[in-house]
């Protein structure tokens, strides 16, 4: 058994990860791609909203908020 892939929403706070795959409809995938979220992009989970959702990640030097229900469709590996 090699590396375990998990949904982005499963990654604990203050952990870094690398994007493996984005399983979303084309429009949303395109939006994320344009914002720099591509296979191989590294990011760090830096915070969450007071009620636990959405989460805040840092990638390419900026902060992005994303709902857990969207994040779970982004397959990542922990690094």
């Amino acid at each position: 058994m090699g590396v375990q892939y998990i949904g982005m929403d499963q990654l604990p706070l203050n952990c870094s990860g690398r994007i493996i795959n984005i399983n979303m409809d084309n429009l949303l995938k395109r939006k994320l791609t344009d914002m720099g979220m591509i296979k191989g992009t590294e990011f760090k989970v830096e915070g969450q909203a007071p009620l636990g959702d959405p989460i805040r990640i840092n990638l390419r030097g900026y902060n992005l908020a994303i709902r857990k229900s969207d994040a779970k469709n982004i397959l990542v590996e922990r690094i």
């Binding site: 949303l28 994320l32 914002m35 959405p54 805040r56 900026y62 902060n63 992005l64 908020a65 709902r67």
Partner: peptide
């Protein structure tokens, strides 16, 4: 219909 929350926090 879809709804999502993907937003930059400047």
């Amino acid at each position: 219909e879809k709804s999502y929350f993907i937003m930059e926090l400047p």
